[in-house]
Computed example of a mutant assay.
Amino acid sequence: MRSFLRAAVPRLAAACALAALGLVDLWLGEFSGQGGVRLPWAVAAVAVALCADRPGPRGLPVLAVAQAAGAAGAWWATRHDQTAGMPFTLSATAALLGVLGLLTWRGDPRWTAVTAPVLAVSVLVQPLRGDGDDLRTAVGVLVLVLGVALAATAGLAARLTAAARTRQLERARAAQRAEFARDLHDFVAHHVTGIVVHAQGAAAVAGRDPELVLPALREIERAGTEAVDAMRRAVGLLRDDDRAPGLAEVPALVERFRRTSGLPGGLDLLGPFADVHPTASTAAYRVVMEALTNAREHARGATAVDVALHRTANGIAIRVTDDGRSVPGHPVPGRPGGFGLRGLRERVAAAGGTLSAGPAPHGGWVVEAGLPVGAGVGEEA
């Protein structure tokens, strides 16, 4: 119903305006004269103008040519008419200008470049009459030049605005696709890393202690189930941004890491966090998740992983540390080429925060991030 009204109201307003101009033409005696051509031409021009939005981008140029041909025929039939008060009818001219504006707005660009000038010329020649009144002709041409310029400018402005909006939507969709790719990488990589670690552990103890293989397989099964759930949540983010995990899910994330990795670790939460913006809350969760994933995958010989989230005067401070060593032959999490950390920096920057990662002074690795409590830079933009 709303879409019907949105389409019907402008058409009804245009019909009322053209009908009012037709009454003015009737009052001025514009429909009297040679052969009675002006009245049927005005009615036809108005009717076509009211339906001009239906043919589509490729049909509009054809309709414009038909309008131009009709205007040329009406002009030719009445070019020697001395009985009309004005050299052109208001209603038919307004209908032609309306089609011209719609053509420059929605018409196919290639054909519009050819047909719009033809329609404009058909409007401008209307004052050229055979009565020899140069002053009236000049005034009429100037008035119509102004009308043509306004109609073409309005249509072109609407076309440029629509094109800018389309580009903006395309950029937003591209950003959403990149965001989804990062989400999917973060969620799945976190759980798949746990599966790989348990599989390697099961393979290492299978020969000397087969009884430990069954618990490892159960952990692999649990990690696989969690990975599937994570993928479903990631896909769900495309439909509902409110389902994105945030600071409230960090304790469960750390507990799951302890269970699947076998590494002890501490969690230090110093709130409150209730007023944290969802963008910052989600970014904080991703920082912790990526840091834990990197610790489990790259921190060789680690004995503990500690997570600290503190509410500060400036926002949220996040610090994740481990005491391990990087695995030879594997990329160090902070070095260039790591997709997870690079994407994480982009996410944190979009939330208005900063991220750093590197070796700790006394060994191990440290990931630190600072996030604002309110909407970030990317959110405000």
Rank of each mutant, 00 (worst) to 15 (best):
A52Y: 11
D53T: 05
R54A: 15
R54T: 07
P55H: 04
G56Q: 06
G56R: 08
L60Q: 14
L60K: 13
V62S: 06
V62W: 12
L63A: 13
A64F: 08
V65P: 00
V65A: 14
A66M: 13
A68I: 01
A68Q: 05
G70S: 10
G70E: 07
G70W: 08
A71F: 06
A72V: 11
A74P: 00
W75V: 06
W76S: 13
A77Q: 13
A77T: 08
T78Y: 04
R79Y: 01
R79A: 10
R79P: 03
R79T: 07
D81K: 10
D81P: 13
Q82P: 11
A84R: 15
A84D: 05
A84L: 05
M86H: 10
F88D: 00
T89S: 14
T89D: 14
T89G: 12
L90T: 00
L90H: 07
S91T: 03
A92T: 04
A92V: 03
T93M: 04
A94T: 12
L97M: 14
L97D: 11
G98H: 13
G98Y: 11
G101D: 10
L103T: 13
T104I: 09
R106T: 00
R106Q: 08
G107M: 04
R110C: 09
A113E: 15
V114I: 12
P117D: 11
V118S: 06
V118H: 04
L119A: 06
A120S: 08
S122G: 07
V123R: 02
